[in-house]
Amino acid sequence: MSDAILELKNVTYRRDSITLLDNVSFSLTRGDNITIFGPEGSGISSLFDIIIRANADFEGDVFYKGESIKSLGYFELMNYKKEVGYIHGDYGLMSNLTVEQNISLPLDYHSSMSASEIKAHVGRIIYDLNLDHCRKLRPFDLTRSEILKAAFGRAIAHDPDLLYIEHAFEDQCYLNIKSLIDVLTGRSMRPDKSLVMITYYPQNFIDISDEFIMFFNGRVVFTGRKEDFMNSGNPYLVQYRTNSIEGPMIIL
């Protein structure tokens, strides 16, 4: 049996006759962490439609824990979404709920835990993320880093096997999210938990990523482990690393 938690096989995705993903294949082994990067319009954001929203019409297939998500019915899709933790760049915290209520929302909705168990569990997450001082505050009263930490807390509340983070760290001061990075680093070392990080700044995730994939024009143009990412002479990667407009990628 394959130990892949997530696998994309020959995925081609078109919208309005524009090819957003072109024959993309990669897999993520259980316990591994992957960083996917590329310039704007490279297709890294289109992966969301395929992997997370799972409602797009595309060629090829996506497997989660060996099961095709393309064939999932209404309720199975709900269960799949419940199993994957997701954070996006807008964070999407419920503005009428406090930090504590936001983090406990998926548990209140799905979990069979009792109210007191949820409270204790959420309390631990709040403590780990250093959010104790804003437990009763609503998103409106929070700083950017606190919003990210609350969204992160909500995404990991039900301890998902796969966490998908999309451009969530792009506009953050790393000093303020130290507690979050510590939790994320701890999580990345667990053999049963995997992470997909979608970002424009892959170098920020060298310490937690096992593999790096670069996209350009909807295609995978580089795949490699941490050492390859740092040392490879792949012209696409070199151009991206050096922030140069000279190279195989024509940047508009």
Binding site: K81, K82, H88, G92, M94, P106, Y109, H110, A151
Partner: peptide, 10 residues
């Protein structure tokens, strides 16, 4: 995108 977040929480 609060509604999207809810959807993605299942």
């Amino acid at each position: 995108r609060e509604i999207l977040s809810m959807e993605l929480m299942g």
